[in-house]
Simulated assay, not measured.
Amino acid sequence: MPPAARGLLVAVVLVVLVVGLVVGAGALLAGLLRPGELAAQERCRAEVASPDDPDVLLSASLAPDQTANAALVVGLANRRGLPARAATIGVATAIQESGLRNIDYGDRDSLGLFQQRPSQGWGSEAQVQDPVYSTGAFYDALVEVDGWQDLEVTVAAQEVQRSGFPEAYADHEPEGRALASSLYGLSEASLWCELRPVEEPGDPAAALDGLLAALDPAGPPGWQVAATPGDGTVVLAATGAQPERAAWALAQSVVAHAAAHDVVGVRTGGSAWSRDDGTAGWVDAEPVEAGTVVVEVAAAGA
C-alpha cells in the first residue's frame, strides 16, 4: 500500500475510534444521569459583593444537598448569636473537611461534616454524624479560641481542627463569606437555586412539615408561622429588632432547602424566587408584608 494511502487509512481509523469513544462516553453518562440532567444540573449559587472591595464578587456554587448543609451550619451560628464571621469559618471548614456532606467515613475514625474523631473526644460516632450536634461542637470549640474573631479564617479553623493541612481552609474563605452573608440576611437576593420541576408532588402539608422541621432547630432565629392559607402555602413572619433582614435570612434558607422539600416559590419584600425560573435568581414581584416570607410547595394537580 502506498504511504499516502496508508496514512489516509490510519487517519480514518483514528476518527472512527474517537467518534466511538465520544458516543460511548455520552451513552454511559446518559445512563448514569436521570432524564433531563444532561440539559440542566441542579445547582445553587450564592453571590455577594466583597465588603473589602465592592467591585469583587464572592461566590459559592454547590449542589442542593451541600447548600442545605451550609444553611444548617450558618443557621446554628446565627441562633447562637455569633457574628457572621463564625459562620464563614464554619462553612469554610466543612467544605474542606467533607465537601459539606455528612459522610460516614474519613481519615482513621473521622466522621461527619467536620470529620470529628470520637477517639479525640468529639463525641460518639452517632453524635459526630448528627449535623446539628457536630456543628454545635465545632462552635463550642471555636469560641474557646482566644481572639478567634480577629484571626484569619484558616488560623481559626486550624485551632479547632488540628488538621494535617492547615492552610487548606483559606481556599474556601470566599465561599464561606458568600454563604454566611446570604444566609444571615446581610445580602439580599444573593442565594438562589436552579432546580428541576417537581415531577410527582406528594402531600403538600407533609412537605411543609419537613421544611419547617429543617428550619427548626437549625435555621435562622426569630421566626414563626403566621398563616397557613392552604394549597401548599405558608406565611412565615420574622421577629426581632431587624425583621426585614431576618426575613431575607429566612427566605434564602428556605431556598437552600427547596430541593428536598418540593418548594416551588418563595417571596419576601418585593422579590421572588421561583423553581420554574431558578436560573433568573430573584426577580421583582408584588410586595408582601414587611418581615414576612411566603413559601409555596408543589401540590398534585397544581
Rank of each mutant, 00 (worst) to 15 (best):
T228W: 12
A258S: 12
V254R: 06
A249S: 11
P229Y: 06
L236Q: 01
Q252M: 05
Q252N: 05
G222P: 09
Q224I: 08
T233W: 06
L211P: 14
S253P: 10
A249T: 02
G219V: 04
A251F: 04
L236V: 02
A227N: 11
L212A: 09
A226Q: 15
L215H: 07
L215P: 01
D216E: 15
T239L: 10
V225H: 05
A213Y: 07
A205R: 15
V225C: 03
V225K: 09
D209H: 13
P220N: 02
G219M: 05
G230V: 09
V235M: 05
D209I: 06
G240M: 02
A205H: 14
P221K: 04
V254W: 01
A205G: 15
A206L: 14
A206N: 08
A237I: 00
T233R: 15
A206I: 12
L250I: 05
Q224P: 01
A214T: 12
L212P: 07
G230S: 11
D203F: 14
A258W: 11
D209P: 06
A241H: 08
R245S: 03
A237F: 00
P204I: 11
D231K: 09
T239H: 01
D216F: 06
A251W: 00
P217E: 03
P229L: 11
V234K: 07
L236N: 01
A214Q: 11
T233N: 07
A246M: 00
S253R: 02
A246H: 05
A258L: 07
S253M: 06
P229G: 13
A249L: 02
G219C: 04
A205I: 14
V234S: 06
G210A: 13
L208K: 09
D231C: 08
V225W: 09
A218Y: 03
A241L: 14
G230P: 13
A238T: 02
Q242H: 15
A247I: 01
L215G: 04
L211G: 12
P221Y: 01
G230Y: 04
V235D: 03
L215E: 06
V235H: 04
P243F: 00
H257D: 09
V234P: 07
G232L: 06
V255W: 08
A259C: 09
P220Y: 02
H257C: 10
G230C: 10
P220S: 04
A241Q: 11
W248F: 06
Q252E: 15
D203L: 12
P220C: 03
V254N: 10
G232N: 12
D231G: 15
A241P: 08
T239G: 02
A207Q: 10
L211K: 13
L212S: 07
G210V: 13
T228H: 12
R245K: 10
A207P: 05
A214C: 08
Q224Y: 02
A251P: 11
G219F: 04
E244P: 05
P229W: 07
L215S: 03
G222C: 03
A246K: 00
T228A: 14
L236H: 05
R245G: 02
S253H: 07
A246D: 04
L236M: 00
V254H: 07
A207C: 10
G230W: 03
L208C: 10
V225E: 12
G230T: 10
A246S: 09
G219T: 05
V225F: 07
Q224A: 12
Q252I: 06
A247M: 01
D209Q: 15
T228Y: 12
T233E: 14
G219L: 05
